[in-house]
Amino acid sequence: MKRWAIPLVILTAWFAAAGTACAGDGLPKPNIVIENKDGQCVAPPEEMRRNHMEMLKHQRDLTLREGIRGSKVSLNGCIECHAGKKTGSVIGSDDSFCQTCHAYAAVKLDCWDCHQPKAGYKATGAKPHE
């Protein structure tokens, strides 16, 4: 029961918020575009909307602290599928996949301080400090 209560509350709040946005209070409403349609998300979209934060936070501890790799849930995985074609990134504009909802819900992520938000990105490989 309790397990469902929190997502339910979030979902209700989400729809309520979405409702007010549609009513035209000036906030751009989330513009979720799935550009890369091959392959399936790691879970059904409803579950993703509700749970992706917990999934990611759980997975990061497994990967970093325990060394469990190759899991279905992976931040780099999300980025590979969900990066926008124009920017090549999951953030950067208010239409970017990992930003559109967050901008709307006023969630601020610190993940991109460290995690490379661009898909297929390789560091330049230049020698440092020369």
């Binding site: 397990r3 790691v42 899991s71 849930v73 995985g77 590979e80």
Partner: peptide, 26 residues
């Protein structure tokens, strides 16, 4: 936490293929 256990178990079965499937891990 418990919500993810399913995902994890399910993944154990398909893990190997997934690992190869993601460009990064290859």
């Amino acid at each position: 936490m418990s919500d993810n256990d399913n995902g994890r178990r399910g993944f154990l079965a398909t893990g190997a293929t997934m690992a190869a499937g993601l460009g990064f891990v290859a």
